[in-house]
């Protein structure tokens, strides 16, 4: 028996013993990882890599303050990690410290990074700026991020929402068309239809809406878009029929206890278009509570409020 095969035999033997001894224990989730990393840090001293790893595990457990502490120390030891800057920035934003989040993003953006990493950090900074109401600055960052990495569907959506809030209708439509060409993402097509409707290009929007209605299993989303177009064309009856059908479909889909917030937002829009503003507000607010915190819901709520004040 050669040396190699002998040692292999021993190795397999150990595996077999292990296998028989098992079957449970070890690798018990993030708590276990944190314990091991803490032991290593105590034995080997602080290292940027180990601290970054531990920060990621803390984040998994929702312990963001501990994660931030590790990330700050990690960056003291190695300030060149794009991942550490991005994590620090996002964690700070998540615990409501936008100034610190912005500082971390800015520090990261000051590094010489591969373009994909730079673009990711720009998108993070755009999120922070958007959250602080600095929409034009956020837009600039997203434009640059998309230029560097034109294949991220999420960034086109975020930019579209910023365009909408800034009332940059043409830029919104063009930006989405650019995204559709670059990625083919279907959510950008839906967003583009919304952008066309917002810009009054209803005939163009209707072509896509009808096509989607013809081959979709669930139709409420597209029925509501058609209702918007019909309302603009003063076809109140047609619009009302679409909205009623959409609400019936949604009633079967929305979970009575734990509804999907996207469907709540959709029902809110149907209610709003039917003039049921209180019901719409209720749905929008419930959607927002469940995580639909984007510019769209904010926009709809402020539209309702404005119309109530006007009346």
């Amino acid at each position: 028996m050669s040396q190699g095969s002998f040692s292999k035999w021993i190795a397999w033997g150990s595996c077999l013993l292990l296998a028989l001894a098992l079957p449970t224990a070890a690798h018990d989730g993030p708590e276990h990882e944190i314990e091991e990393l803490t032991e290593r840090l105590a034995a080997e001293g602080d290292s940027a890599d180990l601290l970054l790893q531990r920060a990621i595990e803390f984040k998994v457990l929702g312990k963001l303050s501990e994660a931030i502490e590790d990330l700050e120390r990690s960056l003291e030891l190695d300030s060149g990690s794009a991942l550490a800057h991005r994590e620090l920035s996002k964690n700070c934003l998540a615990i409501g410290k936008p100034e610190e989040a912005l500082r971390a993003a800015n520090r990261g953006l000051g590094l010489r990074l591969p373009s994909a990493d730079h673009a990711s950090l720009l998108a993070v900074r755009a999120e922070i700026l958007g959250a602080r109401g600095k929409r034009r600055d956020a837009l600039r960052d997203l434009d640059e991020a998309i230029k560097l990495l034109p294949a991220n569907v999420e960034w086109y959506l975020s930019r579209s929402q910023l365009h909408a809030r800034l009332n940059l209708r043409t830029s919104r439509i063009r930006g989405l068309e650019q995204g559709i060409e670059a990625t083919g993402g279907s959510v950008l097509i839906a967003e583009w239809v919304d952008a066309l409707i917002a810009d009054g290009q209803n005939t163009k929007a209707l072509i896509t809406v009808e096509k989607e209605l013809s081959d979709s299993r669930c139709q409420s989303f597209w029925l509501i878009r058609r209702a918007q177009i019909r309302q603009a064309a003063r076809d109140a009856k047609g619009a009302s029929a679409d909205l009623t059908t959409a609400l019936e479909e949604l009633a079967g889909r929305i979970h009575p206890v734990s509804p999907d917030p996207q469907l709540l937002a959709e029902r809110g829009l149907a209610q709003e278009l039917l003039g049921n503003k209180e019901a719409a507000r209720k749905d929008y607010e419930a959607a927002r509570e469940k995580g639909v915190l984007d510019e769209w819901v904010r926009g709809r709520l402020s539209t309702i409020t404005r119309s109530e004040i006007a009346n």
Partner: peptide
């Protein structure tokens, strides 16, 4: 490593994809 929130691209795509399939 992607956004899971309901207004994110992945959740919106998921909803739309499920609405389409037969």
């Amino acid at each position: 490593d992607l956004e899971r929130k309901p207004s994110g691209a992945m959740a919106r795509w998921l909803k739309a994809d499920l609405e389409k399939t037969k």
